[in-house]
C-alpha cells in the first residue's frame, strides 16, 4: 500500500523535478520559440524569450527555399516503407519462433541480434559501391531496402516478445475449431497482437525517421529525407537561426509526438526485452 506523502515534500520534489525537466527540454523549447521570431529577434541581446513579434514567415520561407515537403515526404516513405516491409517479413518469423520453437530458435534470435551489433561503417564501402553500380544511390527504394534490413532484427525481437505473451492454448483452440494456419494468423493471432504490432510499428518508424548514417551517406538531393535536409543547413543558413529553427521544428515535431505515445514500448524494443 502506498503511504501518504506530506504535501510539503511533494511540493519540493515537484519543484526540483520540473526545473530539471524544463532544463532538459529547453533546447527544444528554445528552437520552438526561435522559429517564430524574425532573424533580428533571434540573435537579439539579451535574448527575447516570449515578448517578440510572433511570425510564421520562417516556415513559409523554408518551404519555399528548400522544398521542405519533398524531404518530408521522402522521410515518410522511407520510414513507413521500411517499417512495413520489415513487419511483413518479421510477423511470420516471430510467429514461428514464439509458437513452434525448435532447438535452434534461441540461436537464431541471438544471431539476428548480432547482425544489429555490426557497425554500419564496417559495410559502408561495399554498400556504397553496390548502390552506385546498381543505380540505387540517392533513391528512396535504396534507402528503404537498407533500413528494412537494418531494423529487421529489432522488429523480429519486439514481435517475438509480444507473441510470447499470447498463450499457445488459444492458437491450439483455433486449430481444434477448424482454423487452418492462415486463418489462425488472420482471425486469432493478429487481432490479439494488435497492440504489440502497433508499438513495434511506431518505434521503428521513429528509429528509421531519425537514422542519420545511411541517409546521410546514400542520398544527395532528390531522395534526401529530413536528416539530410537539415544537415544541408549546416552552413551558411545555419547562421539564420529563425529559419534553422523552423526547419528543425518541422523535422522533429511529428516524431516527438509519435515518440510520446510509445514511451513504454520504447524500453522494451530498445533493450530487446531485457528490461520490461
Amino acid at each position: 500500500m502506498a503511504r501518504t506523502v506530506t504535501t510539503q515534500r511533494k511540493v519540493i520534489v515537484t519543484a526540483i523535478a520540473w526545473t530539471i525537466a524544463i532544463a532538459i527540454f529547453f533546447p527544444i523549447l528554445w528552437t520552438f520559440l526561435t522559429s517564430f521570431k524574425t532573424e533580428a529577434d533571434a540573435i537579439a541581446t539579451p535574448p527575447k524569450f516570449l515578448f517578440f513579434d510572433w511570425t510564421t514567415e520562417n516556415y513559409t520561407t523554408v518551404q519555399g527555399r528548400s522544398n521542405y515537403f519533398l524531404h518530408f515526404w521522402n522521410s515518410v516513405i522511407i520510414s513507413v516503407g521500411s517499417t512495413v516491409a520489415a513487419l511483413i517479413i518479421a510477423i511470420p518469423a516471430a510467429w514461428s519462433m514464439a509458437f513452434v520453437p525448435g532447438k535452434r530458435t534461441k540461436d537464431i534470435l541471438m544471431w539476428m541480434l548480432s547482425t544489429k551489433m555490426m557497425p554500419a561503417v564496417g559495410v559502408l564501402v561495399p554498400i556504397y559501391l553496390l548502390f552506385r553500380d546498381t543505380g540505387l544511390l540517392d533513391t528512396r527504394i535504396g534507402l528503404v531496402i537498407v533500413l528494412t534490413l537494418m531494423n529487421l532484427p529489432i522488429v523480429v525481437w519486439m514481435l517475438y516478445t509480444y507473441f510470447k505473451e499470447i498463450p499457445g492454448e488459444i492458437l491450439e483452440a483455433a486449430r481444434m475449431d477448424g482454423a487452418n494456419l492462415t486463418r489462425e494468423i488472420i482471425y486469432v493471432l493478429t487481432p490479439m497482437a494488435v497492440p504489440g504490432i502497433a508499438s513495434t510499428l511506431l518505434l521503428n518508424i521513429i528509429l528509421a525517421w531519425n537514422e542519420a548514417f545511411w541517409t546521410l551517406n546514400l542520398t544527395a538531393s532528390k531522395s534526401a529525407p529530413l536528416t539530410q535536409f537539415i544537415a544541408s543547413y549546416s552552413s551558411p543558413e545555419g547562421l539564420f537561426y529563425a529559419k534553422l529553427s523552423a526547419a528543425s521544428m518541422m523535422a522533429i515535431a511529428p516524431i516527438i509526438v509519435l515518440g510520446w505515445f510509445s514511451q513504454k514500448q520504447l524500453v522494451r524494443g530498445l533493450t530487446f526485452g531485457a528490461v520490461k
Binding site: P27, I255, W260
Partner: peptide, 22 residues
C-alpha cells in the same frame, strides 16, 4: 514527457541547434 523528448530529436537537428544557438 519533457525529459524523454530529446531522444526523439534527429541527430542532425540536435547537433545544429546546439552548435549554432547554444
Amino acid at each position: 514527457v519533457l525529459v524523454i523528448a530529446p531522444f526523439f530529436v534527429m541527430p542532425t537537428v540536435s547537433a545544429l541547434v546546439w552548435k549554432n544557438m547554444f
